Amino acid sequence: MATPIGNLMDITARALLVLARASLIACEDTRVTGKLLGHFGIVTRMLPYHDHNAGMMRPRLIAQALNEPVALVSDAGTPLISDPGYKLVAEARAAGVNVVTAPGPSAVIAALSIAGLPTDRFLFAGFLPAREKAKADVIAELANVPATLAFYESGPRLAATLTALRAGLGDRPAAVGRELTKKFEEMISGTLSELAARWADAPPKGEIVVLVGPPLPAPAATADELDSALREALTSLRVKDAARAVADRLGLPRAQVYARALALKDAARNG
């Protein structure tokens, strides 16, 4: 479950019941989760579970979860989204533990719901690499994904990441969400170049989500471009093969391109 420390009103009654009934709460930082428990008068014992002690703690947590309820809490947002909890869940399920969820706010889902970008398909890619070459390589891998892309980012790196996305993806529509579901929440939309310029000299504070719209449709080929491509293809391919190759390259309906290829072939034969 989540501990939305930034906005205590976001926690659900079900989540509070789970925390109160648990025999043990595994959390990233006991100081952070302790604030939440103290606010609601919950006295359940806590143990830290994070990247540095996860291997040692998992067997202990799983052994207890086989006999008593154990809760897993993240510092902010829904657990297992960019945190180490997935290994604990995987091993707990393999050991026969019944794992259930009491979801809290998720920054990426919150951002998608208010950004005004397509949500029928989206790909969450977490944090991009910090190094310029590695970042560019990952962006290149995502360039042709037909979906809205979602990333987490820090304030100091935001402008550089937006610039790298502009270079690798083109100047697509995008949005930057900051401190979502919290007091200073904001969502700013624009093109990638506009957003990069906005924060070039003044990095924002807080937790940030970057959303980038799907690839922009290529401009439709003109009649002259179609004829030129077909004439070139017909010098070495049969009509059917030439039409298929040109249709795929220009993004046009194959039937339309095939009909035009036949017309050009007949014109050449009769000319």
Rank of each mutant, 00 (worst) to 15 (best):
P156Y: 07
R157F: 13
L158Y: 02
L158G: 08
A159Y: 06
A160N: 09
T161R: 07
T161K: 06
T161Q: 14
T161L: 09
T161P: 01
T161V: 11
T163A: 15
A164M: 04
A164C: 05
R166G: 14
R166I: 01
A167C: 03
G170A: 08
G170R: 04
G170N: 05
D171T: 10
R172E: 06
R172P: 07
P173W: 06
P173Y: 07
P173M: 06
A174T: 13
A175H: 05
A175Y: 12
V176D: 04
V176N: 05
G177D: 06
G177M: 00
E179L: 13
E179R: 10
L180G: 06
L180T: 12
T181N: 00
T181S: 06
K182V: 04
K183A: 13
F184M: 14
E185Y: 11
E185D: 08
E186Y: 11
M187Y: 02
M187L: 15
M187A: 08
M187C: 15
I188P: 01
I188H: 07
S189N: 15
T191D: 03
T191M: 05
L192P: 01
S193H: 10
S193D: 13
E194W: 01
L195S: 07
L195C: 10
L195Y: 08
A196D: 05
A196V: 09
A197V: 08
R198L: 08
R198V: 00
W199L: 08
A200Q: 14
A200H: 10
A200M: 06
D201H: 14
A202P: 00
P203W: 00
G206M: 05
G206D: 02
G206W: 03
G206N: 06
E207I: 04
E207D: 13
I208L: 13
I208G: 04
V209H: 13
V210E: 02
V210I: 15
L211F: 04
L211Y: 06
L211A: 10
L211I: 11
L211T: 09
V212P: 00
V212R: 00
G213F: 03
P214I: 12
P214T: 13
P217H: 14
P217N: 12
P217W: 07
A218Q: 12
A218P: 01
P219D: 14
P219L: 12
A220N: 03
A221G: 12
T222F: 06
A223S: 15
D224L: 14
D224R: 12
D224M: 12
D224S: 15
A229M: 05
L230D: 00
E232N: 04
E232R: 14
E232W: 02
E232Y: 02
L234V: 13
T235C: 08
T235M: 10
S236F: 03
L237C: 03
V239I: 15
K240Y: 04
K240I: 10
D241G: 05
A242D: 03
A242C: 11
A242G: 02
A242Y: 04
A242E: 00
A243R: 07
A243V: 11
A243K: 12
A243H: 13
R244N: 12
R244Y: 03
A245I: 02
A245F: 00
V246P: 09
V246S: 05
V246Y: 01
A247V: 07
A247G: 10
A247L: 08
D248H: 10
D248C: 01
G251Q: 07
G251M: 11
G251T: 10
L252H: 03
L252T: 04
L252F: 05
